[in-house]
């Protein structure tokens, strides 16, 4: 009565093989899909803020406020007066594969006593940069927290810095600084509708992409990511069941009469159990 061992390639197992392939393929595909969704959520959330309608800088943060963490990358409208003498160059920034510098000039913001550094663009070298703008300005840029960097500035006497570290900049500038800087966004190709800029100081410089798009909320897309992992675990589980099944079917049956095997070898167990009256446990 015991089943004979079956070859793993036996037609009797083709159905099991096919089912395993289908289930694993489905689990992998569904996992990839959920993973894609989780990623897209983050990108969407970030892009939403980066392309939100600009708000007046002073409505987002005051001159003495700490950086509002949820506003990284928010477009802000800056109106004020250029301080061309305080222009700096930030080294270590590439553009189209070429190393160079960001050019940043502070704007004293209207109705505050603080200035905010505005990254006007990128240049190959400080000497190649156009003269800094003068006078009143009105521009839109992405709000960024000050850089945190351990790199020290080799030469403190020149206008070249290694980062836009607000603490370092405060010691160079007369008056207060916002604890933030702004990356000029008026000329970005994917910028939908910026307020018409006035004297934004970007002429002659290459555009700078926003260095830090706002980080999407950590929970955004987490659910989908967990679903992705779940689907992949399902796939692994299906693989395991298939393997057990094939191993059982292909293993030579043990000699009949073993104490463990006795009960299950009469007909198919399922039928046997359903025909049998329920034992008296009621």
């Amino acid at each position: 009565m015991s089943e004979r061992a079956v070859s793993p390639f036996s037609p009797r197992l083709w159905g099991a093989h096919l089912l395993m392939l289908l289930v694993v393929a489905a689990a992998v595909a569904l996992g990839l899909w959920q993973y894609g969704v989780s990623h897209q959520h983050k990108v969407d959330a970030a892009a939403k803020l980066a392309h939100a309608d600009p708000r007046l800088l002073t409505d987002v943060m005051g001159g003495n406020d700490a950086f509002p963490g949820s506003q990284v990358g928010r477009p802000v409208l800056v109106t004020g007066t250029w301080e061309p003498a305080e222009t700096i160059f930030v080294s270590g920034h590439d553009h189209a594969g070429e190393s160079g510098y960001w050019v940043a000039t502070p704007v004293e913001v209207d109705s505050t006593k603080s200035a905010i550094y505005v990254v006007r663009g990128w240049t190959r070298s400080p000497d190649a940069a156009p003269a800094a703008p003068h006078g009143a300005t009105r521009l839109v840029g992405w709000l960024q927290p000050g850089d945190q960097t351990a790199a020290t500035d080799a030469d403190r006497s020149d206008d070249v810095l290694t980062s836009l570290d607000i603490a370092t900049l405060i010691s160079r500038v007369d008056g207060d600084l916002f604890s933030a800087y702004v990356v000029g966004a008026d000329h970005q190709a994917d910028w939908p509708a910026s307020a018409a800029p006035v004297n934004d100081g970007s002429a002659g410089l290459a555009d700078v992409p926003a260095p830090a798009l706002p980080q999407a909320d950590a929970s955004t897309g987490l659910r989908n990511f967990l679903y992705a992992i779940e689907w992949w675990l399902f796939g692994v589980f299906a693989l395991y069941i298939w393997w057990r099944y094939v191993a059982d079917m292909t293993r030579p049956a043990p000699p009949a009469g073993g104490p463990e095997d006795g009960s299950s070898e009469e007909g198919t167990p399922e039928e046997a159990s359903q025909d049998r009256p329920v034992p008296s446990d009621a």
Partner: peptide, 21 residues
């Protein structure tokens, strides 16, 4: 997932056939 694994362990111990499992 816990249910799947538990059920599968039970099916091995109780020697269910594959369709029932």
């Amino acid at each position: 997932m816990v249910y799947l694994v538990t059920t599968f362990v039970l099916s091995r111990k109780a020697k269910w056939d594959m369709p029932f499992t």
